[in-house]
């Protein structure tokens, strides 16, 4: 198992390098010069000077190496627009995104697992059909649309909850902040909830049809003990799916964040794209992709713990 974890850790390096290459290449695919887009019609000599100071006049491979070197030492550069350090912008935004991601995961996973277990046990009943149909709807639903539906129902029609923003409270743990997080959390939790419910249901059904469950019943174990065995066996698969969904919540929240004007990484990314703010753009995409890589790594390791068979093949 230790060997597996080690090899998995080592494998993360080439992936991380590949990710950094894609992020770098993406930004340089962009047509036009990053600086002229920001500075507009100004003196050419000034642009040339700026270009030299940002290093944009060097050949691309050299730029990449310089960038990678500074990224490795935690230096992500400065925003072309505001001059603020990219790392600083990202840290506060990431905290907001992670807060939503964690809440949405808690909500989505608990509802999804419960619904999936019920449906799996009551296979073929109306309850199962309701869960399966809702799960398909949840997977197909454009979650940014769900966000608007929630705003219309809870903010416009009933006036219960704030429609946008994060509130003005200084602490994230105040009632005001919490109120602002309710709708985005629900909107974000729909997809993970549906996917976890589908996976759990399929897993539970498969395990219940296995012979060892029959054997446990024959030995006279109580239903609750059997459920324990079923849970234990479903855990690795469901865990893997949950991890992937959590990583998706962190990296893919841009659309919902846009609807709610939530000050997270998604909003930063959106702003950077339209400002053509290259350092911020690079930094945000890199950070989000790294979230994803690290989460996947953690899940793989957790999986070897939950299911020792994984590390053996």
């Amino acid at each position: 198992m230790f060997q597996y974890i080690l090899s998995r850790l080592l494998y993360t390096f080439p992936i991380a390098i590949g990710v950094s290459l894609i992020v770098f290449a993406l930004v340089h695919l962009a047509p036009g010069d990053p600086l002229s887009a920001v500075m507009g019609e100004v003196d050419q000599t000034m642009i040339a000077e700026m270009r030299a100071s940002f290093g944009y006049d060097k050949p691309l491979p050299l730029q990449y190496m310089t960038w990678l070197g500074s990224v490795a030492s935690g230096e992500l550069g400065y925003s072309l627009r505001s001059g603020q350090a990219v790392l600083e912008i990202l840290l506060s935004a990431a905290a907001n995104t992670i807060a939503l991601g964690v809440l949405a995961s808690l909500l989505g996973f608990s509802v999804g697992i419960a619904a999936g277990m019920f449906a799996g046990y009551r296979n073929g009943t109306w309850l199962d059909k309701v869960v399966s149909a809702s799960a398909i709807a949840g997977v197909s639903m454009p979650h940014y649309w769900l966000a608007i539906v929630l705003v219309i129902v809870f903010s416009v029609e009933w006036g219960l909850l704030p429609a946008v923003g994060a509130g003005s409270a200084s602490s994230m743990f105040s009632w005001e902040s919490f109120q602002h997080m309710i709708l985005p959390t629900i909107a974000l939790s729909a997809i993970p909830c549906a996917i976890v419910a589908r996976t759990t249901r399929a897993c539970v059904m498969e395990i219940l049809s296995m012979e060892f469950v029959e054997a446990l019943r024959a030995r006279g174990l109580s239903e609750s003990r059997i459920t324990l065995h079923v849970t234990r066996n479903a855990l690795p698969t469901v865990l893997a799916v949950m991890g992937l969904q959590f990583a998706n919540l962190l990296g893919g929240s841009i659309l919902v964040e846009t609807v709610f004007a939530w000050p997270g990484t998604g909003s930063v990314l959106n702003q950077a794209i339209f400002d053509r703010d290259i350092p911020v753009l690079q930094g945000t995409i890199l950070l989000l992709a790294m979230f994803f890589v690290v989460t996947n790594l953690v899940i793989d390791i957790l999986q070897t713990w939950a299911d020792p068979r994984v590390s053996r093949h």
Partner: peptide
């Protein structure tokens, strides 16, 4: 397959937004 793996390191929405955002 290793190149494919690298693309798997991005959530699909992020990758789509990043590429479309970079291209304009």
């Amino acid at each position: 397959m290793r190149i494919t793996d690298v693309f798997y390191a991005f959530p699909s929405i992020l990758l789509a937004v990043a590429i479309a955002g970079a291209l304009g």
